[in-house]
Design a protein around this nucleic acid. Structure first.
Length: 499
DNA sequence: ATGTTC
């Protein structure tokens, strides 16, 4: 069998694109889903140490997984998929990430690339003015505490009532844009205070708002079901729960330290801080996390509302409906969810595959930098897409294409119904700023690639330069080859508002 | 990711 040596670890290719981490006989398998090319830098940082640690956590259901875009994160790798038994496992803020329900949505239009050519500057300026971005709460109209409470509790449902969303929008979000388990009372005042001044803002870092054109369609029938055709303009919105989600994560990491010090000490790494599944704190964190998830959906919806109004204005349409700016889909890629999966009972735990008694178990599935990718026929796929599979949106860097996939037939059996979430970073933000200067990157994109970028900060452009990311084509190629998320269409950037 | 250093 093919092996790959990465730093202190040896990986063995047990099936094409499936690499198992070296381990003791009695430990839980950990797997990297990747091509050999994507493994090139995986030994340079702590990614594989982190993956091995996740596989040693209480109640983990085999295997612990790293997606093709995976890299080092806080405790867990970004690109980590880990499922823990909901009865005797645990739930971990580090397995969700600081930016709770960071995610992406794609909005369709009936415009084509020709409609925008020559007007890119006008469009990107108008979008930049309409959508607050960058660090902090600048430019956002402060919401009332009552609005925030409703957003935390009801997500996109609240947006429907307020006229910021249609009922159809809500149906085209993962979980229909609302986690009913949200508990606003479990969100601290400090987190809420940060949220009230940030509702409807893009944020910073890798967050962006990008107008794109569809360049390739790989699966005609599914593209048709998704409403995508070549040359069509679409809008991709990538943002999360801003300071509110960050504060929720910080709050609960601290409470785990205070309230479960013995459990914390038993974990392989303190950054994996987790609450035991049967504890009150686990329920509280889950309620707070679900509320932050709802907040992020509201955030993306309010940005969508601003984008729709801006397009109607720029393209002289009576309203956004005339431009048919329907939501294709909204996916979360930093979440944990209580889901029921069919697993195999092993000696003292459970495994996703393998021979033995098959049972249904409730699991806390953590997808940190990973996208749900449920296949055709799954009851949680919206009825409009149920015959083809859940739309999966995978953005590339701002100089590369993005992809629309559909949940693949193999995803439930291979990856707890999950696939990759993006290109994956190749280097730290600090190193990126040494290697690139924002203004140069911006000029290159405009002159060489006809991509118009407008950003709140030049440093952010440097941190997010196309060269700091892996090749998204390789990432989606692995997903497609494994049958966990199948290629449907590719887009290419037209103009980009960067946080 | 992040009022970019609890």
């Amino acid at each position: 069998m093919t092996t790959f040596d990465a730093g202190d670890h040896r990986l063995t290719e047990v099936e094409p694109n499936v690499w198992e981490l070296d381990r003791d006989d009695d430990s839980i398998p950990a797997r990297v889903l990747a091509s050999e090319a994507l493994l090139e830098h995986i030994g340079d940082d702590m990614t594989l140490d982190q993956l091995r640690n996740v596989a040693a956590m209480p109640g983990v259901v085999a295997p612990a997984l790293c997606t093709p875009d995976g890299h080092q994160g806080y405790g867990f790798p970004v690109g980590g998929v880990a499922a823990f038994d909901a009865e005797d496992g645990c739930i971990s803020p580090g397995g969700v990430g600081f930016d709770i329900n960071c995610g992406v949505r794609m909005v369709r239009t009936n415009l084509t690339y020709d409609d925008v050519r020559g007007r890119e500057d006008e469009l990107v300026d108008a979008l930049f003015d309409a959508v607050p971005c960058g660090l902090g709460g600048g430019g956002v109209h402060d919401r009332s505490h009552a609005d925030l409470e409703k957003a935390l509790e009801r997500g996109v449902d609240w947006c429907v009532e307020e006229g910021y969303a249609t009922r159809e929008d809500r149906l085209r979000c993962e979980d229909e844009g609302m986690r009913p388990d949200a508990d606003p009372d479990a969100v601290s005042k400090k987190a809420k205070d940060r949220g009230t001044s940030q509702m409807g803002s893009l944020g910073s870092g890798n967050h962006f708002l990008e107008v794109q054109r569809v360049t390739d369609v790989y699966d005609d029938d599914t593209a048709d079901a998704f409403g995508l055709v070549e040359d069509q303009l679409v809008v991709l919105i990538h943002c999360g729960s801003r300071g509110l989600g960050h504060q929720v994560c910080s709050d609960y990491l601290r409470r785990i330290e205070q309230e479960h010090p013995d459990f914390l000490a038993s974990l392989p790494d303190r950054d994996l801080a987790a609450a035991p599944a049967d504890s009150d704190l686990a329920d509280e964190y889950y309620g707070a996390m679900c509320a932050a998830i709802n907040f992020a959906w509201v955030n993306r919806q309010l940005v969508t509302h601003a984008v729709r109004e801006t397009f109607a204005d720029v393209f002289d349409a009576p309203d956004w409906e005339a431009l048919e700016m329907d939501l294709l889909y909204d996916v979360a890629h930093n979440i944990a969810k209580r889901e029921t999966h069919t697993v195999t009972r092993t000696g003292d735990g459970y495994s996703l595959g393998g021979d033995g008694e098959r049972v249904e178990r409730d699991l806390y599935v953590h997808r940190k930098g990973a996208t749900r990718a449920f296949p055709a026929g799954h009851p949680e796929v919206p009825s409009a897409y149920r015959d083809v599979g859940q739309p999966v949106i995978i953005p590339g860097s701002m100089g590369a294409g993005s992809y629309v996939l559909k949940g693949g037939e193999q995803s439930m059996g291979r990856s707890f119904g999950s696939t990759a979430h993006g290109a994956g970073r190749l280097m730290s933000r600090t190193r990126a700023k040494d290697e690139y200067w924002g203004g140069d990157v911006q000029d290159d994109l405009r002159e060489s690639d006809e991509i118009y970028v407008k950003a709140a900060s030049g440093a952010t452009i440097a941190e997010e330069a196309p060269g700091v990311y892996k090749d998204v084509d390789d990432v989606v190629g692995v997903s497609d080859a494994l049958g966990i998320g199948d290629l449907v269409a590719r887009t290419y950037p037209v103009c980009n508002v960067k946080g």
